[in-house]
Nucleic acid binder design. Sequence first.
DNA 1: GGATCTATGACAGTTGGGTGACAAATCCGC
DNA 2: GCGGATTTGTCACCCAACTGTCATAGATCC
Lengths: 229, 229
Amino acid sequence: MTAVLVIEDDDRIRLALLLALQDEGYDAVGAATAEEGLRAQRRDPADYVLVDLMLPGLDGFECIRQLRRDDDVPIVVVSARDDTHDIVAALEAGADDYLVKPVAIKELTARLRALRRRARAVVGGPAVEPVPVLAFGDLEISPDAGEVRRDGRPVAVTRTEFRLLCELAEHAGRVLSRQQLLQRVWGYDIGDERLVDVHVGRLRQKIEPDPATPRHLVTLRGMGYKLQR
Amino acid sequence: MTAVLVIEDDDRIRLALLLALQDEGYDAVGAATAEEGLRAQRRDPADYVLVDLMLPGLDGFECIRQLRRDDDVPIVVVSARDDTHDIVAALEAGADDYLVKPVAIKELTARLRALRRRARAVVGGPAVEPVPVLAFGDLEISPDAGEVRRDGRPVAVTRTEFRLLCELAEHAGRVLSRQQLLQRVWGYDIGDERLVDVHVGRLRQKIEPDPATPRHLVTLRGMGYKLQR
DNA sequence: GGATCTATGACAGTTGGGTGACAAATCCGC
DNA sequence: GCGGATTTGTCACCCAACTGTCATAGATCC
């Protein structure tokens, strides 16, 4: 059965969603806080996660980022706030869809089905499907395969380096500030920005032909880092 | 460049969408009917398709089904109708997302990016998100990339110069007083206005073919500076 | 021609980023 | 569990690049 995790602090709404989803044939479980939800998803991963934005403690955005960090589960935001800023921020954080309360259960399930078509394409599909690769000149990154190659030869990078690289690759050509990187790779709200420098330095040692004069992973003084061709 | 096909019969809306998407760095093309859109997509497949539901002749639902029949392109419905029935029907027909007019362009592009994360896995999909560029003749400024180009060649500018340039570019064609620039670039309420001169001068050295007779970054004596084509 | 506004070169103080060293934390084979 | 290897985060130092100030020269207006 398809399992859905509903992270929502309002008991009435959570219950209503759970019942409606169960009516539609889903195996729905609830969590009242982000922390609880994250724990539940780690323990027993659902096929979809519904998350509210305004949660006590860890808020929805942070919750999304943390979910996304170690899971590719489709995430749908269900929020009372109908504000472009929130929508963009939630999607940037890693959400797949954003619905404004009150939601029609039929629409919700239709959107879940639409998401499944895409999500399933990743895991299922033909066995010999070409692994998606982001290429930057002589540099190749396969986020799904967890692999980095230079000139076709595999390069051993650590997990943190890999996440950092993926984050930069995902936004190739754009500057990402140290803050943004800390936020997206480490999930820190605040923290020592120099940490990013160190990992960028280490990454350069591995992926740049000449680490002293980076060609791909470049510094924009005062702004941040970016990955380019 | 990432291509978007916009299928929408209302000329005004189609044009507005095309312009907004082009501003965001997409290669956007339009079609006024479903038939025209289908033909365009077969001839020269875009990376995303935006489609209206109420189209003359073949309607949006049918259009989606036909697109879906021979293409896995992400499809986003942009419709004036905010009705659960329509939403469910469109998603069932094969659409990936559904937005209600009027759409915020920032939300639209955020949703396209979110879709890309999912779609990428299928066929390699669109590579990386395009980076918006402001163009002034031979001068290109890309706020997101933190990059300035002249005649296509990158120009190294410092952070302050870059901010100054972006501020001027954002209000292209309009005079900005030294006060305004100080306020917006430096955040000073008061301060030495000469400071602006110095940075304008440095910027000219870098972006003007002949810094002594500026063509883009011009002085309006007694008023301030402006950036023009 | 004088007053006012702008351009620019020089300079010193400051900032920002690269890097190596090191200790804590984590992983891994046994 | 245990011990070594690897990874991770913190720190401090150094250098290069950047910034703001000032003085002077040049341009423009009336």
